[in-house]
């Protein structure tokens, strides 16, 4: 058997894949957080709840209406994005002038309500969501067996991340967003409807979280609390990356996911704290974060 650092290659690559999958979710979630924070200056504590809502949207669309995975992949983010737009319009928009901590506290309360509500109706245990037929099964790569769905998640998240990056960096809408991140008042004085842009941005961030949630549904179970511990890890990732750059959020997400996977191989006891440890180290060495621009 081939060994790498005294670990069987199989196990090593298996954990690497698990890390890459986790990294895919981390990247999508920290990307959404960074976009929202960039423009709204709100740390969206409800991000984990919106991720969970995405997974539930997929589950409920299937069980109530028989809508399959592929349509849910579009409909779920739209539904969650719309709910985000409502929240932004009627609540968050009233908090921009205050200390940014109030945005964090409000979305924290929102997360409690959403998660508590789903738990009330669906209990704490997970609901299974079947892998779509097209993506079930696996392929033998010679050195390891890879479930097709997992490969799909990695590819899909890369497409989503790069697509979002292109949207922000290369399109007209993206230039509005970047400009408004720098100086919203001036951009609005140019005639651009910045309040609407803020609503759209929050909806986009929430929609991204929901998309991640649906992608996650067949891998993890669909449960009301699936996002609540995850969001804290994503916060740590965001502290490591610094929220100054979209690409930074994406890269940090993948990197830390893989690192976490590798920790599972070499020192499993530390695997669920490794990201926090890295956060602490980064705070000592480079407090602004790896890609951070703000002090």
């Amino acid at each position: 058997m081939t060994m790498i650092f005294g670990i069987p290659l199989q196990a090593f690559l298996g954990q690497l894949l698990v890390g890459l999958i986790n990294g895919s979710f981390y990247a999508m979630l920290s990307l959404g957080l960074a976009i929202i924070f960039g423009l709204l200056r709100v740390i969206n504590f409800a991000h984990g709840a919106q991720y969970m809502m995405g997974a539930f949207a997929g589950f409920l669309l299937l069980s109530w209406l028989g809508i399959n995975y592929w349509f849910a992949l579009i409909l779920g983010p739209v539904i969650v994005g719309l709910s985000g737009a409502v929240v932004e319009r009627f609540a968050l928009s009233r908090l921009y002038k205050l200390d940014h901590l109030y945005g964090l506290l409000f979305t924290f309360g929102l997360a409690l309500v959403i998660e508590g509500g789903f738990r009330y109706f669906y209990g704490s245990s997970g609901q299974p969501y079947a892998t779509p037929a097209l993506l079930s099964g696996g392929v033998n790569l010679g050195f390891m067996y890879m479930p097709i769905y997992r490969g799909w998640v990695v590819v899909a998240s890369l497409v989503v991340c790069i697509g979002t990056w292109l949207l922000i960096e290369k399109t007209k809408l993206g230039s509005y967003l970047r400009a408004a991140t720098e100086n919203p008042v001036l951009v609005q004085s140019f005639g651009i409807n910045v309040p609407l842009l803020l609503t759209l941005t929050y909806a986009l961030g929430a929609g991204l979280a929901a998309l991640a949630g649906i992608l996650a549904a067949p891998i993890y179970q669909v449960s009301p609390l699936m996002g609540s511990n995850l969001i804290i890890v994503v916060f740590a990732i965001v502290v490591v990356g610094g929220m100054g750059s979209i690409m930074g959020a994406i890269v940090t997400g993948y990197m830390l996911g893989i690192l976490e996977g590798l920790t599972k191989v070499f020192y499993p006891e530390a695997s669920n704290i490794v990201i926090f440890v890295i956060m602490a180290i980064v705070l000592l060495v480079r407090p602004a974060g790896l890609f951070g621009r703000d002090a």
Binding site: F37, I43, D99, H100, L101, L104, N229, I232, V233, F235, A236, V238, V239, E269, N272, I273, F276, V277, M279, A280, L283, L284, P287
Partner: peptide, 28 residues
């Protein structure tokens, strides 16, 4: 010692993450 290196929202997120780390420590 770690958290005061950042301010505002970051301070909140860092304390949350470090406390979660302690939580996992307590679990194990």
């Amino acid at each position: 010692f770690f958290a005061i290196r950042r301010q505002g929202i970051y301070f909140a997120m860092i304390t949350l993450a470090l406390a979660q780390m302690f939580y996992f420590f307590c679990v194990q």
